[in-house]
Design a protein around this nucleic acid. Structure first.
Length: 983
DNA sequence: GTGGTCTCCTA
DNA sequence: GTAGGAGACCACA
């Protein structure tokens, strides 16, 4: 064991008692064996092993052991015969679980440690000392106060039931004394459960106060005579010896003669089949499925292990044989998954074997079923329960889930076995009002009623492709989908940015071709396209069945191939924490929409039209002719041809550029026309893109605007917004802000806008570890002024605005993967000068240069870079021989961890926000929009003051507990009637 | 009608 | 210099 390693020590005995009382009683289904504590224990171990990075612990263990009490008699009984004397026998239904928990530990392939004559706590103390001496960190999985004396900088505790970490500050907060004084504190207070006497009349509060005043127990007992309170003084003097004995009882031994060294606790990957065998024997179906998913094992192929149950806590069951892995199912027909699973021993090999086997499986559309009656549907639902999972897909009349009507849905619980349930297919015989519903379809309401329970049942995993769509559609129809996996999001986590120019999409057709070697029926083949396109409800049911059932079948097969790849590549927590939770969160946001004032926009549109018309007249006058102002080509001909103005830069097709920058320069040079063009463009841009387009997005039913957020479209992890894009509503100019002011709250409610201040620079300060930046943020300084002061040796006081502006541009440039060319462009200075600035910056903040070089090197070596939460962004073209393309990818790779980490942080905030607002009980407070570093909410007017701190708290602490940033996050929030004033 | 180019809106 | 989406124009089908 060495520095950088991390030892997890689970207090197995402590856990049993706590779980037994805290968790609902649970018995094994088949024979009534009580297994509640075992279930809790297994779930906890699995969670720790799987998600340690994202629980409060925030680290991944390298070493792991579970520690148990050996027997009830220990060296403490020699010190004090009454120790634990008033302990009653453990409850009857807990007794058999002692042995089972040891079996569980072995099934997890974890060391199971106990020692005659010592309590688990002593072994934990001893191992924590050994780990600390080796320079490693230790996390003790327990919330027992008796262990808090062990907490140091290197040793912390974790309460698995509350998902809470206990470090030095938490100990002080809880007990009023630091960990090293816990022994003295417990000596004074005693412990009635363990029959440690202590001093009568002294509880934790008094003890902490006395220790604060006198320093330690010995001093306190010596000077007890000075205490003013009569009773307290007498007790301390009279029971001094009891206190000293108590101290020896509570003091943990750090020198227990342990047999196994800490090095033997090194963690190896779980043996899926062995573990599954045990879990099946316990009949923990949910956990069995989770383990099967994560390890890629096929649970259906593994037999339950035979587990002997003995009474008493020294029970040792039979050895967990690894033959469990070779178990075949009753029919003897090995599925694709299980046949490739043989002889495969690592998650990566298994994932690769699954991927290799998948294209060989044939996809037979003739086997698909069309479900036309409720009884058959119910059979399929029962199948889904049996399998514990179901691929689900809807067919509708629109790409917009807020407008779409349901035509039918498809289900698949086993590869090749898929069904379509048509609900509202019509034939052409109806009149213009769309009659002609085809007979033999289950009425929509009855079908929805039938699947509602399945969809809402967390015990059955719902698998979809772009499930947010189906989630929102079904939510509108009163069906909530709980516990989802999304193959699109899994693919996104695995492969964001792979392929040249990010060409690897995560759509189903692309995934099917790539992973299954199968081209699904193209949608257009059923509906046609263009003017003759028909809606899906007009598609012939037989053809619809082949198409729709295939979608569910393919989704299920994709899931089987892709899901194991997450574990193989260490991306489970990225998916679980940053992607999966977004489906319902974003689904609800889109469903809520935001109110937009039609009148304001219509009035603005009229104003803009008038202004533009007047400008057009002036432009024609100045140009001497009428032309299409909006055509860069025609405009170029006028400016640089007819009028003979000097051209600035050229576009990549060789045309003279007419960009705002070029026109601005010409205007500065004294020409009147370019200025008019710039102004005209601004007005027409605002009119066409915003005031004219937005009203068309107001939903007829809800009267609100519902954007659509793409969860898997960016390389960095940001969301994108479309139809309409609400992430680019104007804010920089006064004219533009009039549009923003059209986004309003309904009567009696307010909009709240909360945005992270400088989140990307803060992330940069953290990841590149720049002391000056970190200090500036910690002190709440003006970061750009500080940068300017460092770079140009100018005091912050009385700094000219231009100096600060340059520093600001450089700071942003750093985030964007700076180049002298880009900075020169931005600041309008010569390239050499920009280069000199950059050089100076790197001299002042050498850590930034290191960060950039390291990031580039990592991207070159691995093909990807990572955010602080482990999200990966791929840049395969960083190895291109084309210098321009390579440089571009280098800049993007430098930017991605910064932009991506910020994106991850706000995703974490969003994942928690709904529950936090709900718990706050402040009325209907709803998260409506996300604009990269800003969240927009709607809240009752009277609740606003109380809501804002709740929002800020969640956002500012969003990185915790997974990551502790070395820089504080700061959120600014305001409420108003419209988005402009709130922002 | 579709796709490429240019421009411009946001963080 | 990063990450997006969208509208207008225009050449092509």
């Amino acid at each position: 064991m060495k520095k950088g390693d991390h030892l997890f020590l689970v207090d197995g005995s402590g856990y049993i008692f706590r779980a037994y009382h805290a968790l609902p009683p649970l018995t094994r289904k088949s024979d009534g064996l009580p297994v509640g504590a075992v279930a809790g224990f297994c779930n906890m171990l699995w969670k720790l092993l799987q998600n340690a990075r994202d629980t409060e612990v925030g680290v991944t263990p390298t070493h792991f052991a579970v520690i148990f009490d050996h027997s009830s008699k220990t060296f403490r009984n020699d010190l004090y015969p009454e120790y634990k004397a008033n302990r009653s026998e453990p409850p009857e239904d807990l007794v058999p679980q002692f042995g089972l928990i040891r079996e569980a530990t072995r099934a997890f392939d974890l060391p199971c440690v106990e020692l005659q004559g010592f309590e688990a706590d002593d072994l934990i103390a001893t191992y924590a000392r050994l780990a600390s001496e080796a320079g490693a960190e230790t996390t003790i999985i327990s919330s027992d106060k008796d262990l808090m004396q062990l907490v140091t900088d290197q040793v912390s505790m974790y309460d698995p039931m509350k998902d809470r970490e206990i470090r030095i500050p938490e100990v002080i907060e809880k007990w009023g004394v630091p960990p090293e004084k816990m022994i003295d504190l417990q000596a004074l207070t005693g412990d009635s459960v363990d029959n440690v006497p202590g001093v009568p009349g002294i509880g934790p509060k008094t003890a902490a106060q006395l220790l604060e005043e006198y320093g330690d127990l010995d001093t306190l007992l010596e000077r007890a005579g000075e205490i003013k309170q009569n009773k307290r003084r007498e007790n301390l003097i009279e029971h001094a010896e009891k206190a000293r004995v108590s101290r020896e009882l509570v003091r943990l031994r750090i020198d227990a003669p342990v047999e196994e060294g800490v090095d033997t606790f090194e963690l190896s990957p779980p043996d899926g089949p062995k573990l599954i065998g045990f879990l099946k024997a316990m009949e923990f179906s949910t956990l069995t499925r989770r383990v099967a998913e994560a390890t890629g094992a096929d649970a259906g192929e593994i037999d339950a292990t035979h587990v002997e149950v003995e009474a008493g806590d020294e029970a040792h069951g039979p050895d967990m044989g690894s033959d469990a892995a070779s178990g075949k199912d009753a029919t003897g027909t090995a599925s694709a998954a299980s046949s490739v699973a043989d002889g495969v021993d690592t998650p990566q090999k298994l994932a690769d074997a699954l991927a290799e086997a998948a294209p060989a499986q044939t996809i037979d559309r003739t086997a698909y079923v069309c479900i036309r009656d409720l009884d058959t549907l119910r059979e399929w639902i029962a199948d889904a329960y049996e399998a514990g999972l179901v691929a689900f897909d809807t067919e509708t009349t629109s790409l917009d889930p807020m407008q779409a009507e349901l035509c039918g849905f498809s289900l698949a619980s086993r590869p090749g076995k898929a069904a379509y349930v048509p609900l509202s297919h019509k034939n052409g015989t109806g009149d213009l009002l769309g009659g002609g519903l085809i007979e033999g379809q289950i009425p929509e309401k009855e079908a929805l009623d039938a699947i509602r329970g399945l969809m809402a049942d967390p015990a059955v995993l719902k698998i979809g492709q772009n499930l947010k769509y189906d989630w929102l559609l079904m939510y509108r129809l009163g069906v909530e989908i709980v516990n989802c996996d999304d193959t699109m999001l899994i693919s996104y986590v695995l492969d964001a940015g792979t392929g040249s120019h990010g060409t690897v999409g995560h759509g189903m057709d692309a995934l099917s071709e790539r992973w299954l070697g199968h081209v699904p029926i193209p949608y257009k083949e059923l509906t046609g396209s263009g003017r003759n396109q028909i809606t899906f409800d007009m598609v012939d049911i037989e053809r619809a069945t082949a198409y729709a059932a295939e979608d569910a079948d393919i989704t299920l097969r994709l899931w089987q191939v892709l899901k194991p790849r997450l574990a193989a590549r260490g991306l489970v927590s990225v998916y679980e924490r940053l992607e999966r939770p977004m489906i319902p969160v974003i689904g609800r946001m889109e469903h809520r929409g935001i109110e937009v004032d039609r009148q304001i926009l219509s009035r603005l549109s009229g104003d803009f039209a008038q202004t533009a018309a007047a400008m057009e007249d002036e432009i024609y006058e100045l140009a001497g002719e009428r032309f299409t102002i909006g055509s860069p080509k025609q405009l170029g001909d006028i400016l640089f041809g007819k009028m003979g103005l000097p051209g600035g830069s050229k576009t990549k097709t060789g045309q003279w550029s007419t960009s705002a920058q070029v026109l601005e320069d010409l205007a500065t040079a004294g020409h009147p026309l370019p200025r008019k063009i710039v102004d005209w463009r601004q007005v027409t841009k605002l009119k066409s893109t915003y005031t004219d387009a937005l009203p068309g997005y107001i939903n007829a039913e809800t009267g609100r605007v519902h954007t659509s957020y793409a969860l898997a479209s960016t390389t960095t992890g940001r969301l994108s917004s479309s139809e309409p894009n609400l992430q680019n509503i104007p804010v920089r100019t006064a004219e533009g802000r009039k549009i923003r002011a059209a986004f309003i709250a309904p009567r009696g409610r307010k909009l709240i806008s909360a945005d992270y201040s400088q989140i990307e620079l803060r992330v940069l300060a953290h990841v590149a570890d720049i002391p000056e930046l970190k200090k500036a943020f910690a002190d709440g300084l003006d970061i750009h002024a500080m940068t300017a002061s460092e770079m140009f040796d100018v005091p912050v006081e009385g700094m000219p605005p231009e100096v600060r502006r340059r520093a600001k541009a450089i700071n942003f440039g750093i985030i964007y993967g700076i180049s002298a060319f880009g900075l020169a462009n931005q600041l309008g200075i010569p390239r050499e000068e920009a280069g000199a600035y950059i050089k100076r910056y790197f001299e002042r903040f050498p850590g930034i240069k290191d960060y950039m070089d390291n990031t580039k090197a990592q991207a070159r070596a691995t093909g990807y870079v990572e955010t602080i939460f482990g999200r990966r962004a791929h840049y395969p073209e960083i190895r291109s021989s084309n210098p321009q393309l390579r440089a571009f990818n280098e800049r993007a790779a430098i930017n991605a961890p910064i932009q991506g980490s910020a994106a991850d942080i706000i995703r974490r905030a969003m994942a928690r926000m709904d529950a936090a607002l709900e718990n706050a009980g402040l009325g209907e407070v709803q998260m409506l929009l996300q604009v990269h570093d800003e969240l927009v909410f709607e809240a009752p007017e009277e609740a606003v003051e109380k809501v804002i701190p709740v929002i800020c708290d969640i956002m500012e602490n969003a990185a915790l507990p997974a990551r502790a940033l070395s820089v504080p996050l700061q959120v600014e929030a305001r409420a108003a009637d419209n988005w402009d004033e709130a922002h």
